[in-house]
Simulated assay, not measured.
Amino acid sequence: MSERRFCVLLGPDGAGKSSVMGQLAEALPEWRMVSTDSAFVAPEHALVSRLRRDLHDHLLPGLGTAYSVDFLASVLQTAVVYVRDQVAGGDPRTPVLVDSYYYKILAKCRLAGVGDSRLYSWWREFPQPSRVVFLDVSPESAWRRRGDGAQLNILEHDGADADWPGFERYQKNLRKLLLEETSALPLTILREQPDATHTTKAVREALTS
């Protein structure tokens, strides 16, 4: 497992990871894409897609009332373990690109106030990637991509209201934690590109250089 080649595509909310991975799946067919996005989840893992939908449709709207942040972390851990298992599986000669790995979930759990250091320590013991490609995006651009705040969920902003100050503050703190968690790894930070096509080209060059 330690010799398996895998890279991680990382970035704040609205960085465009899903769009880039979709384009890379066509541009780099020799690579295997790992994500909890339904486009990359095999039929035999349909439970993962259902959990993701339920997270957004039921858990997040009830966070703090019907559900605690500890319950949230427990559900998010299913995604962390699924992604880890997917990295471990398959032909070890096939290069793998992973959407966020555990880094983004860990950062969001920390921002949500989940203080279980034992959980974080376990995740940090997972095999580490050979490279992290970080898609940088300004909070302003991410805000526009989220419909000027209309498409936000509670794990993308501070405070009860999805307003611009809360979004900007949250995204700056998220970026800081993501870079903190990956600071000891080979890290390529890509500046914001004008569109998904240019971003995909930049990521492809970073992965294949």
Rank of each mutant, 00 (worst) to 15 (best):
T197D: 14
R146C: 03
I189C: 15
P194E: 07
R144E: 09
S138H: 11
L106F: 00
L63G: 03
V34F: 15
A162I: 05
E30K: 10
Q86C: 10
D163E: 14
C109T: 00
L185C: 00
L185N: 03
R52L: 14
R4N: 05
W164P: 00
Y67Q: 05
L47Y: 00
G115H: 02
V81A: 01
K201N: 09
P61I: 05
W164E: 06
L9T: 05
E181L: 15
L72F: 07
T78E: 02
P127D: 14
Y103I: 09
V75K: 04
V133I: 15
F167S: 11
A46M: 04
A39K: 09
R144K: 12
Q151L: 11
Y120R: 06
Y67L: 12
Y82H: 05
P92G: 05
S209E: 13
R84H: 13
L24G: 04
D161Y: 00
R131S: 14
A202C: 12
P29S: 07
C7E: 06
S130E: 09
E181M: 11
A25N: 04
A66H: 14
P129F: 15
F167M: 02
R191E: 14
L179H: 11
P139Q: 15
R118Y: 15
G159M: 00
F40I: 01
G16P: 01
P127W: 11
T36P: 03
N173I: 05
V83E: 02
E205S: 10
V75S: 05
L135E: 14
A88S: 13
D57F: 03
L177K: 12
Q23E: 10
R146I: 02
P186H: 11
D85I: 01
R110E: 15
E3F: 11
R169L: 11
G16W: 02
P127Q: 06
P186M: 08
